[in-house]
């Protein structure tokens, strides 16, 4: 079972992407999508050393909703900052200590940071203990660090890593 179907989640995702790509729900396309979703992970199995485990699927959905709301709000913030006077901006680099260990969780966190309020992840330190973040307009360093740690990192830790 393990060897025949190494990544069940990836299989479903690939089948879904195939259906979106051909833009139809014809039974033949569903079968073809599932076939592709079964074959591609089998062929590329060497590239996926660790299996992705999601411990709380419901919490992941909840987290994605929070992120989507944050993205929309972030856009208004950034739009206001861009339209304001450029001289008033106070950009800064902040490094954020990480508790996450797995690759997937760290890259997820970096992506979320880049998509939300005025911050872009800039560099991950080589021992994976700090993430350097550039903020477009920063009033309070501690506030940013706590927001990122409690709003984004904590749920990710619960979702992707056993605690």
């Amino acid at each position: 079972m393990r060897r025949l179907l190494p990544h069940p989640l990836l299989t479903l995702t690939l089948a879904g992407i195939w259906l979106l790509l051909v833009n139809s729900l014809h039974p033949g396309q569903i079968v073809l999508g599932l076939l592709l979703g079964w074959m591609i992970p089998l062929i590329t199995t060497q590239f996926w050393p660790e299996e992705v485990r999601i411990h709380h699927p419901v919490r992941l959905l909840h987290f994605i909703c929070i992120i989507l709301i944050d993205i929309v709000l972030a856009n208004f913030t950034v739009a206001r900052l861009i339209l304001g006077r450029p001289g008033n901006l106070k950009p800064a680099f902040v490094s954020i200590p990480l508790e996450l260990k797995s690759d997937l969780a760290i890259s997820f966190l970096a992506n979320v940071i880049s998509l939300t309020p005025g911050t872009v992840s800039a560099r991950l330190s080589d021992d994976r203990s700090y993430l350097l973040v550039h903020a477009l307009h920063l009033n309070n360093t501690d506030e940013l660090v706590t927001t990122i740690k409690f709003r984004y990192e904590k749920p990710l830790k619960e979702i992707f890593e056993q605690c």
Binding site: P86, L89, L115, V120, A122
Partner: peptide, 9 residues
């Protein structure tokens, strides 16, 4: 570094 914020978001 500030310019990068515009396009990404």
């Amino acid at each position: 570094y500030t310019r990068i914020h515009g396009p990404t978001k």
